[in-house]
Amino acid sequence: MNFWRAIAVATLLAAAPALLAGEIAPEARRSGYAFMGPDTRAMQDDDTSNPGMLFVLDGETLWTKKTGSAEKACADCHGDARGSMQGVAARYPAFDKTQGRPVTLDQRINLCRANHQQATPLPYESRDLLALSAFVAHQARGVAITAGEDPQVKPFVEQGRDLFMQREGQLNLACTNCHDDNFDKHLAGAPITQGQPTGYPMYRLEWQTLGSLERRLRSCMSGVRAQAYDYGAPELVALELFLMSRARGLPMETPAVRP
């Protein structure tokens, strides 16, 4: 092997950090989309049949609506979301200097409301918050996920990883037991996916509405009969951040459709 090739190979090896036990290799990562039947896929693929697009349209209206005592709209600071918000959701949760910790897209929206619009926070899972975050995340559709790369969030990624590995609840199961060790298998007949957070907020047919990633995580926690963390809890944000870093390279799909 010549010198330059040896260097190229060494660089390649260095660029691909060793996987931890149980971790899914980058080329083996698959969105929940890959596990769905043709009907659900078709519903997601066609914007006119994707029920999540109604929320995206609502979000587009809210984007330009003046709100709060500052009488400002999101668009007054950020302009056309198609440019300013392009790809943003692919790197969330992201570090916020004033908070000294990572914040989710929902939390960022509420921070903007508080600090720049002088408006009250939108409650978690409210239609307006889901609509705004769906609209913003939709501007990242097709963009590869990069969340977790900022050195400032590394400790929080590690916290999320620990939570992912931690058995909990009366059934004493960890996220990793299902989503690393048993994807492609079935829980009571339903497919188990890798738990990739690519399409949030997303429309779940079972919910009959759009829901956040936090809602999904809370329902997995209740499923193992654990005490779910409250919306916005640092533990949920850390888990969300870990999941996004675990999905590195997968394209965003918001608004996804899942059974």
Binding site: E168, G169, Q227
Partner: peptide, 17 residues
């Protein structure tokens, strides 16, 4: 094992209320 212990009431983490 991932199979839960069905007759156990301690040593578990964050069990739902």
């Amino acid at each position: 094992t991932i199979m839960p212990s069905y007759y156990r009431n301690d040593g578990l983490v964050r069990v739902g209320r």
